[in-house]
Design a protein around this nucleic acid. Sequence first.
DNA 1: TAGGCCATGTAATGTGTTACATGATTAG
DNA 2: CTAATCATGTAACACATTACATGGCCTA
Lengths: 202, 202
Amino acid sequence: MSLKHILLGLLREPATGYDLKAAFNESISHFWSAELGQIYPTLRRLEDAGLLHSRVEPSEKGPNRRVYSLTDEGREELLEWLRGGPVVGVERFAYLAQVFFMDTVGDLHETRAFMAALRQRLNEWLARLRAIEADINGTYGNAPEHYPDAGFHQFATLRMGIRSIGSKVEWCDETLAAIDRRLTMAPSADDTGECRTLEETR
Amino acid sequence: MSLKHILLGLLREPATGYDLKAAFNESISHFWSAELGQIYPTLRRLEDAGLLHSRVEPSEKGPNRRVYSLTDEGREELLEWLRGGPVVGVERFAYLAQVFFMDTVGDLHETRAFMAALRQRLNEWLARLRAIEADINGTYGNAPEHYPDAGFHQFATLRMGIRSIGSKVEWCDETLAAIDRRLTMAPSADDTGECRTLEETR
DNA sequence: TAGGCCATGTAATGTGTTACATGATTAG
DNA sequence: CTAATCATGTAACACATTACATGGCCTA
């Protein structure tokens, strides 16, 4: 039920489905994403439910735009969601599943290459987030407590992205170091062991 | 396409759907989850595709068990997935979306209460992960490079959970501190500002 | 003139949760 | 006797991605 509320939140200002897709790509991509194929039907359903209303406007370039805005009912629904306490869902990381099973390959060098590739991907992501942060700091200063209201909250979410992705890059480094220590050891565990899980040997 | 491969990975040892559900709850809940309603049909499809085969066994307690095991084809498919490089998907955090829009409520004390509740949830989660880590360290020592092969890889994923959730708890603290600084300021931003986003004022 | 952006929408498919249905065994 | 655990499955629904379909305007 989150996309629904995120759309309501973004519709602080009236916007089209296309505009909202751009917002997902730009400001929000570090914690949510949605495709147009999901956005358009959802907006329509929210209008049917009375949480939004729309008007059709001619566009300067391209076809007519359907501009949605919040109704009072929609604003109320948004506030209820916000006041309902944190929605903590399941986290899914396919690449962690890959690490978890990577011993099946039977060659720690494969794990090493995997972790190095992962580190690079995450580090690029981190760099993008840090660039946005530097941009904001350059304009508004380093003290978020002086930012405008919405800016303060938005900056906080960016900070979580930076801390969270940053911690993952550090984890890659920690793991790469452990792999290197393991690779320089006598290959005892790899050869004598039965590739057991921790639970089985406990 | 990840659940499919995770099931193949878990079927290192033959197991029933019920067993696999237990594995999701126990060892891998910090990076994936699945319900029985999804596991059973998926196993059936994997068998139809020739990646698994099953035999029915009587159970000591309860109804007959359908025990699945990997075929050579299934093992090959798993290895391809593992060797295909890190699968980095979208991260979705509903609670970050809530923070992002929380200024709509118009009272920073609401944000503070939200962040405090979130911190507690995350901290409990962290404590569970740390307990597992302590348990493993107690049995195998503090040097993961000496763990058995599968254990080494599994421990690495646990470490990422600890770092990642830990960084989020730290982020909560950072944000709570910023909120407190903002609350003790003259309430200028809250009253004079127009609740603008960072983009709009740029 | 080719490709990208603007702009909307539908259809097919894939992924995931919850509820329903069944029924034996065991521990409190 | 009751609740939990064992054990399998289906059906309905909710959520999400990708492909298809259309077509004008602008830039290289």
